[in-house]
């Protein structure tokens, strides 16, 4: 510590920010989850009441949790398949490949709010780009974000828009695979599918593992798009967990209840992450 004081001095702004804005609220939220607290008056201890109400009396809690799990189950695998597929295609030795890579990566650096606002118009049932294209083929597109049957799916499909972020990580993983493995496979007469199935995919499983964990955590925190595009509607069909938590905390000022929701979410995410970590030895290959 004494030896490294300069280093600590340099990171002290971050340390300060972490303690004040993350660590302290983190611990405080545990306490608040056992209280009724609305900012306006001091917290009143209610024990496990918030948790009981969450699990037994609040149908919207279960609905939002169900929607979020459904989203994670759909969007995360879809993102992995799309990301890996794109990375495989963009790993080919073709002319102008760097241009394609840039094009596919570009959407992921556009701020989420800007993307969401644009997609509100892209998915407009009357004057939107998607329904305009469908109309050219004689198809009347759905009302997307304004239809209870389609709003959720619209957000799932939209998640693919930013797949460039994970694609670039898969691409880096692909570049790391030693060429000698492919040479050996070629000598053994392996075709493209066999090389992909038995060399490429196993070799990038650490990257898939990383994206899976991050994807699941991200899915359970899914908020911005729903907040900007649908505000949870229509008829709560896009009322994701984080959005409901935010509404409870900042719209209804139920800070205690929202803290209980946050800790429930934390436990769920930790449990899922632990589960994935437990299974990863069976399917993740580190090459050694």
């Amino acid at each position: 510590m004494h030896k490294n004081w300069k280093g600590y001095a340099f990171i002290s702004p971050w340390l300060f920010g972490f303690v004040v804005f993350t660590a302290v609220p983190f611990v405080a939220s545990v306490m608040l989850s056992f209280t009724q607290y609305d900012i306006l008056s001091s917290p009143a201890w209610v024990g496990l009441d918030n948790y009981q109400k969450l699990f037994r009396e609040d149908p919207l809690f279960w609905k939002s949790l169900g929607l979020t799990i459904q989203y994670a189950l759909l969007a995360v695998p879809l993102g992995i398949v799309a990301g890996v597929s794109l990375a495989l295609l963009l790993n080919l030795n073709l002319r102008g490949m760097s241009v394609y890579r840039t094009l596919f990566f570009l959407p992921s650096i556009v701020p989420v709010v800007a993307t969401s606002v644009v997609f509100v118009w892209v998915l407009n049932p009357q004057i939107g780009l998607v329904n305009g294209i469908l109309a050219r083929f004689g198809i009347t597109g759905p009302a997307w974000l304004q239809d209870t049957r389609w709003a959720f799916w619209s957000l799932v499909f939209m998640s693919l828009w930013a797949v460039g972020g994970s694609m670039i990580i898969y691409l880096a993983g692909l570049k790391d695979i030693p060429g000698t493995l492919y040479e050996a496979a070629l000598i053994d007469g392996a075709n493209v599918w066999q090389r992909t199935r038995h060399i490429t995919l196993p070799m990038i499983t650490p990257v898939i593992f990383f994206n899976l964990v991050m994807g699941i955590i991200g899915s359970f925190q899914y908020f911005t798009q729903a907040y900007v595009m649908t505000q949870g509607g229509p008829d709560d069909s896009t009322q994701f967990y984080a959005l409901y938590l935010f509404t409870r905390a900042w719209r209804y000022l139920d800070m205690g209840y929202a803290s209980a929701m946050a800790w429930t979410l934390f436990v769920i995410v930790m449990a899922l992450t632990a589960l994935i970590f437990r299974t990863h030895r069976r399917w993740v290959h580190y090459g050694n």
Binding site: N124, P125, A143
Partner: peptide, 10 residues
């Protein structure tokens, strides 16, 4: 309902 929804969304 659908007609109105499309009309208003435009």
């Amino acid at each position: 309902f659908d007609k109105v929804l499309r009309f208003e969304s435009g």
